[in-house]
Amino acid sequence: MSGLNPPTNPTPTLVPLGDSALLVRFGNSLTDAANGAAIGLARLLDSDPPAGALEIVPNLISVLVRFDPLQTSAQTIAGEVRLRLLGHESHRAETREWSIAVAFDGPDLSDVATAFGMTAEAFIAAHNRGSLRVLATGFAPGFVYCGLHPNELTLPRRPTVRPSVPPGSVLFAAGQTAITATEMPTGWHIIGHTDFANFDPTASPPTRLEPGDQVRFMVAP
């Protein structure tokens, strides 16, 4: 895993998203470097937001800067972002570590293990071997993407979508492990479930895991 500092590479692309937001993208596909750069830039912007910025949002490979178009412009925000990318000191926010206990009892567990030519036990051991980064929160409240698994532990999504899976479902696809925090549809493989609840609408902030945190999955006792 590389660090979370915005590196000189990958080079970001700055694209307006409508007339009230700018997206800073570090590539077109999900890589460890692109994700690390996005999280690093979001932290820089959080600590030193450009004037007129309303919201800074780290995504898998990008940072969304929502701004007030009456106060500033996409061009001005883009300039401010470039200045921060150029002038960044070794900005290293604290990395938090979490252990998340998972009951590996999902309906797709044996299919997933078989796809890798493994027993379920061997897959679980391989899955839990390294610690993963929280890549982003998105798609639904408190839904987190964790990764990236090595190439040999990468599998595409299922061809069909399950219309509803419960909160706490532990999902696996595309080199990532995800945790649902609300009931939602998914095309990912369900490998287990956890009691870890990442979303509480009455808490502030309403989610616990932040992009850049390290997560270690364990077999629930």
Partner: peptide, 8 residues
């Protein structure tokens, strides 16, 4: 296969 990204 696009990487999931921000929507407005």
């Amino acid at each position: 296969s696009l990487a999931s990204d921000a929507i407005v």
